[in-house]
Write a protein that binds this DNA or RNA. Structure first.
Lengths: 201, 201
DNA sequence: TATAAAATCTACTAATTAGTATCGGATATT
DNA sequence: AATATCCGATACTAATTAGTAGATTTTATA
C-alpha cells in the first residue's frame, strides 16, 4: 500500500467521523438545545471519547457553528438545484417545505431564534454569518419579486414577510402536531405550508 | 400596634416581595431562557440573597412554575374581562394582541415551546397543567365557533389552527422586528396579527 | 435598655461539565 | 520481530450553580 493511498484512507475515515459528529450534534441540538447539550453527549452518541472529539472541533462553540453552517449549506444547495423556471413564491414554498421535512425528521435545531446568548455566539462566527447573509440575500430577492407580482402581500413590509418566513421554519406547531396529533408527516407539512402562506382565516 | 395589623403588614411585605421575585423571574426567563437563568440572577435582580429566595420558592422548578402560572392567570383574566358581545375570532385576535404586547415588553418567556426538558418539568406541575387545560378549553371552543362561521378556515384541522395560534404568541419574528427594524411596537403588533390570520400571501 | 424571636445573609457542599495532561495501545516501517 | 509514531481513552482541573447550615442582624416586646 503506497503512502498516498494510506493517507487518503485516514483522511477519509477522519472526514467520515467528522460527519458523524456533526450528525450527532444536529440531532442532540434539535432535541435538547444548546445549553443542555454536553460534549460528553456528543462523544457518547458517536462512540468516541471527548479528547477525540476535540481533535475535530476546538470548542463547543466551534462544533455548533460548524453543524449550523452545514445546515445552511444544505439549504443553499437545495435552492441551487431548484428548477429555475419555478416562480419566486414557488421557490420559497419549496424551501420551506424542505426545512419542515428536515425539522420533522429531527434535524433542525431551534437556535438561533430562541436564545440571545446563542445568537451572539453565532454572530461572532464569521463563516456562519457569511453563509447566513448569502442565503438571506437570495431570499430577500425572492420576497421582493413575489411581492411585485402580488404572489406575496405587497402591503406588508418586506422584513415582516422575511422574518415571518424564517420563523415558520422553526414553528413549534409542527412538533406539537407530530407529538400530539396522529397526523402523518405529509399532512403536517401540507397544513403548515398552507397556514404559513394563507394564515388561519 | 396590634398583633393582627403587624402580621398583616408582614404578610403584605412578603406578598410584595414574592411578586417582585416573579417579575424578575419572568424577565430573566424571557431574556436568557430556563437553562441559563440562575437563582443568583433572580436574587440579584430582586436585591435579596439566595436563601431568602428559597424562603419563597422551594426550587428553581417551583419558581418557574409559579411565574408561568401567573402568566396564564393573566391570560385567563384578560379573556374574562373581554366584552361578551365580541365574536370568537375577535376574542382570539384580542388575546393574541395582548400576548404580543406582553412579549414585546419583555414579559413572555419562550418556554415551554422550545425545550422538551422544560416541557416535561412543567407537565409534572399539576397546578400549571390545570391552568393550561382551562385556557386551552376556552380557546378550543373559540376556534370551533370561528370555524363554524367561516371566520377561521373550516378546512383546516382544528388542532392545526390551535397550535399555530399558540405558536404566534412566541413567534421570534416579533423580536427580530423589534431588534432589527425601526418599526414601532404598534406597527409590529398590527403586522404580526395580520400575518397570523391572513398569512404572507 | 435587655431579651426573645424571626428574618436574612455569608459561606459552604455536591454535582455537573468544558476542556486537557498523560498514559497505554495500535499501526507501520526497518 | 523491534522500534518509532501516532491515535485515542482514562482521569484529571477549574469553573459554575442548585441548594443549605449556621452565624448575624434586625425587630418586637417587656
Amino acid at each position: 500500500m503506497s503512502i498516498f493511498s494510506q493517507i487518503s484512507f485516514k483522511d477519509q475515515a477522519f472526514k467520515l467521523r467528522e460527519n458523524a459528529i456533526l450528525d450527532a450534534t444536529t440531532a442532540v441540538l434539535s432535541s435538547k438545545g444548546f445549553d443542555l447539550m454536553t460534549m460528553d453527549d456528543i462523544a457518547g452518541v458517536v462512540g468516541i471519547s471527548k479528547p477525540s472529539l476535540y481533535k475535530h472541533f476546538k470548542s463547543k462553540e466551534d462544533l455548533v457553528g460548524e453543524a449550523l453552517i452545514r445546515l445552511i449549506d444544505g439549504a443553499i444547495e437545495y435552492m441551487a438545484q431548484l428548477d429555475d423556471a419555478l416562480s419566486p413564491i414557488g421557490k420559497l414554498s419549496a424551501l420551506l417545505e424542505w426545512a419542515l421535512r428536515v425539522r420533522l425528521a429531527g434535524g433542525m435545531p431551534f437556535l438561533p431564534s430562541t436564545s440571545p446568548q446563542v445568537r451572539e455566539m453565532l454572530m461572532r462566527n464569521m463563516r456562519y454569518v457569511l453563509k447566513v447573509m448569502k442565503l438571506n440575500g437570495q431570499l430577500e430577492k425572492l420576497v421582493a419579486a413575489a411581492q411585485k407580482t402580488g404572489d406575496l402581500n405587497p402591503d406588508l413590509p418586506s422584513d415582516v414577510i422575511l422574518f415571518s418566513y424564517y420563523s415558520r421554519t422553526c414553528d413549534p406547531a409542527a412538533e406539537f402536531l407530530q407529538k400530539f396529533s396522529k397526523m402523518s408527516t405529509e399532512d403536517i407539512v401540507t397544513h403548515m405550508l398552507k397556514v404559513a402562506f394563507n394564515g388561519i382565516k
